[in-house]
Design a protein around this nucleic acid. Structure first.
Lengths: 152, 152
DNA sequence: CCGGCTTTTCAGAAATTTCTGAAGGGTCAG
DNA sequence: CTGACCCTTCAGAAATTTCTGAAAAGCCGG
């Protein structure tokens, strides 16, 4: 029946999922708009209207999405308003942004290893942690490579 | 010099990293204790003392760590207190717990695809999203398999 | 079965995160 | 140069998350 309603529901559900995945609330809702819009690009004002949110919070959300690299600002098409759209490799980017977490884990493990003595149980546990994240860090580039090849 | 101080600092830093990774504050600090303790297992009371936190919050943290499968309750060694320790495959488990997020992403994308028409830009974007997470979901089992092989 | 020691539960407090609304800045048309 | 429009910034408000403290429940030794 009502396609619009269906889409609105799907968009809201997706936003909730994105929040689960670690995005901030308004950033997640904004990203959902970028996904579900029928236009090629949208402006901050359009997002605010669609989400019934203040211009301020939308501005903040856009800023964070830009920083992470999920959306991009389009070369101004002669209009006064800035246009944005979802980047092509947005999902891979979102996934990759966890690499920083992995690196942080590695560093934390390394620091812990340095602070403990060889034989300590803590030392061993930290070594295991280090090994796992080292492994992960090594695997991810190849994983993303396979993805890019597949879409080729 | 002061090993204890070094270890305490490393533990706190690791807790902060874990929080970045998505854990709740107290759960992260508790996990850090499990990593850095020199004992084989610890009790809730010991954790509360070390973190200078209330027994209540420690109880909540332990509960959540148990649920995610990062720690395990040990068969009572004749004592009145429950003993817990870090599970061997804790880190792989922590990583795997993101699979649920991936599955949720897939479902959200599927719902969106169903709610849009074939030619729509939104339809295409959702299809791309779906493809990526489908790919990821397919890769992860093999990744974890390689990890388990490597450790032997 | 009782007493003491632990842990769990939960309502309220504290802290943190997130949103809004208004002021300010930038840009383009005229 | 001016006016209109839109976006950004930021202090304060609102909402959510997280912690605590006290009460209650569980468990073991005696």
């Amino acid at each position: 029946m009502n396609d619009r309603l269906q889409q609105w529901r799907a968009a809201e559900r997706l936003a909730l999922t994105l929040i689960e995945g670690g995005l901030q609330r308004m950033a997640a809702r904004t990203l959902a708009v970028f996904l579900f819009t029928d236009q090629d690009s949208v402006t901050a004002g359009e997002i605010a209207e669609r989400l019934e949110a203040s211009a301020g919070s939308v501005s903040g959300a856009i800023k964070s999405l830009l920083t992470v690299g999920l959306i991009e600002r389009l070369p101004a098409p002669g209009s006064r308003r800035e246009h944005y759209r979802l980047r092509d490799d947005a999902w891979a980017t979102l996934f990759t942004s966890q690499n920083t977490v992995i690196q942080a884990m590695l560093q934390a493990a390394t620091a812990g290893i340095a602070a403990t003595h060889e034989g300590d149980p803590a030392h061993q546990r930290l070594a295991q942690m280090h090994a796992f994240y080292q492994f992960l860090l090594g695997e991810l580039p190849a994983l993303l490579h396979r993805w890019h090849q597949q879409t080729g």
